[in-house]
Amino acid sequence: MSLIEFHLDSRSGVPTYLQLVQQVRHAVQLGILKPGDQLPTVKEVVTALTINPNTVLKAYGALEAEGLVEGRRGQGTFVASGAPAPVVDDPGAIRAALRRWLERARAAGFGDDAIAALVAEELRDESRRVA
């Protein structure tokens, strides 16, 4: 059983491999994945998402290049021991901050669509900067 499960958003415009990279980063940052944990095998990801194996290899390659994970020959890919510790110990704090931000947005007259668009755009810009 895999420790994490990937999801794809086909309408986000973010390349598939980058979505995988972000989801692993995210999982490490939130402490869902800890050093030594194994990532889903390429075959597991391919079967679950019906995506090209080379895409998974590319995503894992990118994560390896930034030192977040390490490939062990014949075993799979694992979260590296040197991976940064979770930045936030308490996801609840983030959520509270988001709720405050939402209240401000509502007060400024933003509707659901405008808020969603704002977040999506910001995420896309961020992913482009990181990539």
């Binding site: 390429v42 075959k43 391919v46 079967t47 019906t50 995506i51 090209n52 194996p53 998974v56």
Partner: peptide, 8 residues
């Protein structure tokens, strides 16, 4: 899925 599984 079947095809990609074999590719991987």
């Amino acid at each position: 899925q079947s095809v990609l599984e074999v590719v991987s």
